[in-house]
Each structure stands twice: as C-alpha cells, then as structure tokens.
C-alpha cells in the first residue's frame, strides 16, 4: 500500500496504484504496480531498492518550489526540489538504502515552438540532473524530452520500469 503521508494515489481494481499529477507513492507491496499517466512537461521519477523491495514513484510538475511556497508546503510533490527529497525519504522509511536505489525518469516534453521563454520540460530535466548530480545519484534510465506524452509504470515484484506512448510499451529498465 502507498506509504506516504501526502499521497492521493488510488489503488485500482487491477492492483495498479495510480499516482496523479503533483503526487507520489511509495510501497513495499510486491504485487503492486505503481503507475503515473500522461506525463507531458511534468517528469515522473521512479526509485527501486531491489534488496528491500521498496519502490516509489513521483509525478512532479515544475522545477522550483520558490515560485509558490504556499503550494510547496501543501503539495511538496508538485515541485522537483521538494518532491524528490520527499520521495527518497519516504522510501528510506520503508527500509530502502540510497546506495542500492535504481532511479529512472520519464517526461519533460515541450509544447511546439516554445521559443525559449518557458521551456517547462527542459527546466524540469535540468533540475533533476542538478539534484541527482549534487547527491551522487546516477539515472539508470532517462526517457525525457520531445513533445509526446508518456505513461510511466514500475512493477514492485522485479523493479521493471515501462514507458508507454500511443499504445506502444518499452521497458527502459532493466535495459
């Protein structure tokens, strides 16, 4: 079951734990699949500890919480700089260890002809790289960019990470 104080994730009939926009979920349930739908400029981050069998997924919207401190307080998962630490801390509480974590990311797309003024997806991509670089974390798989939407899922049983776009699935971890 999701183990985060702030999650709005819903468990569906088929056992999928659906994580919405600006939300996260962490679980030790080996039968669960964590899934987040329709990543556009938002980024989905998955973490998985294969020894402790702890898995987590975050769907954040924007890079920097300073844009709206009140919202960051209410919904830390809305931003990369508040959501990523919360995702990791939630996993540690369930027994995950940083050095064992397999971290993947997907999303970070752009609207067309965004002539450099907004670059929401690109700034999200930059922010996760910055956060992970500062914390000595390497991305095991990175499926970001473009203009497409992506659905990201993580199976707790084996840690496999799947990206789905327009009905086509691709396993991005293990590669």
């Amino acid at each position: 079951m999701p183990a985060s104080a702030t999650t709005y994730a819903k468990t569906e009939i088929d056992g999928k734990v659906v994580v919405g926009v600006a939300d996260l979920a962490v679980t030790k349930d080996p039968t669960a699949t964590l899934v987040t739908y329709a990543l556009g400029s938002c980024i989905g981050v998955t973490i998985y500890d294969p020894a402790a069998k702890v898995a987590g997924i975050l769907h954040f919207m924007l890079p920097d919480s300073r844009i709206n401190a009140e919202k960051a307080q209410q919904s830390p998962a809305m931003f990369a700089d508040t959501g990523i630490p919360q995702l990791f801390k939630s996993a540690y509480k369930l027994g995950a260890k940083k050095q064992r974590l397999i971290v993947c990311a997907a999303g970070g797309a752009e609207v067309l002809d965004d002539d450099g003024h907004f670059k929401v997806g690109s700034r999200n991509r930059t922010m996760i790289r910055k956060i992970f670089w500062k914390n000595n974390i390497l991305l095991a798989a990175d499926e970001t960019g473009g203009s497409i939407s992506r659905t990201l899922s993580l199976k707790v049983a084996d840690g496999s990470v799947i990206v789905r776009n327009r009905g086509k699935e691709r396993v991005i971890w293990p590669q």
Binding site: V21, A22, A38, L39, G40, S41, C42, H59, M61, A109, E110, V111, L112, D113, D114, D115, H117, F118, K119, V120, G121, G146, S147, I148, S149, N165, R166
Partner: peptide, 28 residues
C-alpha cells in the same frame, strides 16, 4: 497542458501563439 491536465495521445503537440505571449505579457 503544462499543469499535466487532459494530456492524451496528442501530447504537447500544440503551439503557444507568439502574439498571445506578447499581448498577455506571459512570462515564465
């Protein structure tokens, strides 16, 4: 779209009209 709402197969394959960005003074 940026808020991640109602994104389907069409993804982000839409354009923000430059005159709208300028006219509404829509900054980052």
């Amino acid at each position: 779209l940026w808020a991640g709402l109602a994104i389907g197969h069409d993804g982000l394959q839409y354009k923000l009209a430059p005159h709208v960005r300028r006219g509404l003074k829509l900054g980052r």
